[in-house]
């Protein structure tokens, strides 16, 4: 209870600091710390799946993305003046009141969907309830999440202009040797997270984030990594969404409805979708961070 109270106060203070500070670098660092704190809260709420995703994507990769883009912002943007007009306060005041009203009007006896999920778990093809919901009962939501990621990737490619400022490049044998040692281990962890997803916390998004981190490590150490011109990589970027919708259409023809699978094949289809989705997510996230890095040679033909 004391720990939860401290966590809540810390999160509120960090969120305030993140918005209030005029130093953009500090704001990013605080944002990453905030992500870790929120991951801790998810752990306390016994939602390890969300905690893993928040720590890996919300804090880790989003932080890397923000840091990589910080260099491209104009210098004087760090001196944004904090203006508090009555309009600002009334706008956020109304929003705050509405949120408070929404919180107060939440039903005090929550309707649990857990019995329903547990009753249909044997038909889902997996044994972990979260994976059953994400990849079977509500597969469309997960497919659309993937599509949103793909959309963000495309949008970023068109915003990217490619004028960079100089930065300190990291070199040296220590970095290279350590990355060479760590790379196979990190890929192993990604596969483990994916495989574990069918029976316990883990899954495509967490695994994809770890894969992306592995590729970023290779790039930072200036080791030969992925060749982004290759056709197979471009197919890989799109693969997750495509496989998801193809399998979904197959379910429609087999009479299980769009994004539904026959109960006896569900396990296999889910494994296929999750593997391709993890690869796609990893490629998309890595590519999004890399494109915003300087010295990245990616001239698309």
């Amino acid at each position: 209870m004391v720990l939860d109270g401290i966590l809540v106060l810390l999160i509120l203070a960090m969120a305030w600091r993140c918005v209030r500070t005029t130093d953009l670098f500090e704001a990013i660092i605080v944002f990453v710390g905030l992500g870790m704190m929120i991951a801790l809260v998810w752990t306390r709420l016994q939602a390890p799946d969300v905690a893993l995703a928040e720590a890996a994507i919300g804090a880790g990769l989003a932080g890397a993305l923000l840091l990589a883009n910080l260099r491209q912002l104009p210098e004087d943007s760090s001196a944004v003046r904090w203006r508090s007009s009555w309009l600002w306060w009334s706008l956020w005041g109304i929003l705050g009141l509405a949120l408070g009203f929404a919180v107060v009007s939440i039903q005090t006896t929550p309707v649990s969907l857990m019995p329903l999920v547990q009753a249909h778990l044997p038909e889902s093809g997996v044994t972990h309830p979260v994976t059953a919901v994400l990849l079977n009962f509500r597969a469309l939501d997960t497919a659309l999440e993937l599509a949103v990621l793909l959309w963000a990737w495309m949008a970023q490619r068109h915003l990217f202009e490619g004028n960079f400022k100089a930065f300190h490049s990291l070199q040296g044998g220590v970095l290279k040797t350590t990355v060479k040692m760590l790379f196979p281990l990190v890929v192993l962890i990604a596969v483990y997270l994916l495989w574990r997803g069918s029976s316990s916390p883990g899954g495509a998004f967490q695994s994809g984030a770890v894969l992306a981190a592995a590729w970023l490590m290779l790039w930072l150490a200036q080791l030969p990594g992925l060749n982004w011109q290759r056709l197979s990589l471009k197919v890989g970027l799109l693969g997750g969404v495509m496989v998801f919708f193809w399998v979904g259409l197959l379910g429609l023809f087999q009479g299980a409805g769009f994004m539904g699978y026959p109960a006896d094949q569900a396990g296999g289809w889910i494994l296929l979708i999750e593997s391709v989705a993890a690869l796609s997510i990893g490629l998309l996230l890595a590519s999004m961070v890399l494109v915003s890095m300087p010295n990245f040679q990616e001239q698309s033909p």
Binding site: H168, L170, G172, V174, L175, T178, M181, L182
Partner: peptide, 13 residues
């Protein structure tokens, strides 16, 4: 491993 690597990189920088 990661702590010593990061310290090395910060020191190098």
């Amino acid at each position: 491993l990661s702590a010593s690597l990061v310290s090395h990189l910060i020191g190098q920088s």
